[in-house]
Amino acid sequence: MRPLVAILLLAVLVTAAPAQLARDYTGVLSYSIAMPTGDTNEFISNSSFRGLEIEGRRFIKPNLSWSLSWQWNTFNEATSGTFEIPNGHITGNQHRILYSWPFLAKAHYYFGEPTMGSKTAVPFVGLGAGAYWVRETLEFGVLAVEETNWHFGFSPEAGILIPTVGTNDLVLSAGYHYAFESGGRGPHSYWTIKLGVGYSS
């Protein structure tokens, strides 16, 4: 994480401050940490430190935007023990892997106007909905079972947009993802914490 923070600070410090301007578009690229809950937590309880989000926000009002986003979080966990199967039991080491790719349309409301070049951080709340591609893999010794399903889901989030200097932003947010049951799997759910860098025009 330390190199990532240094990169973000460097990107902010080397730029000069322009006049304050309203923004039309903001692109945000974020690093994402995820903590599983519910059924997802029963399958894998480890937090995910492998995550990414790419999002493009279009401002339709100074304090309102809609966006499209793609995220990627990978969870994995190694465990062992005896597990029940139909008419029997199986014992061995397991490696469980879950990939979640949400493709979401979102709307964000800002408690203020996040103008470019402003020195004021602006809190926001947002809600997204769309499709979740989820792949679950269960490796049992040399055997493996894989399940891939598309789920419908939604994701509320809250955060703070910090216009730094120039057209750059830092975006810090926390969100929750819920993907409804599909194909006999799920529902899947997890919290995310994201740290991103934005570029606006």
Partner: peptide
């Protein structure tokens, strides 16, 4: 400003891809 933002974004993408693509060690 533009180059610094693009550079930061590229480095974040690279870091994230490295994090996401390296082998998941059981």
């Amino acid at each position: 400003r533009l180059s610094s933002t693009i550079g930061a974004a590229a480095l974040i993408i690279a870091a994230a891809l490295v994090l996401c693509s390296c082998g998941l060690d059981s």
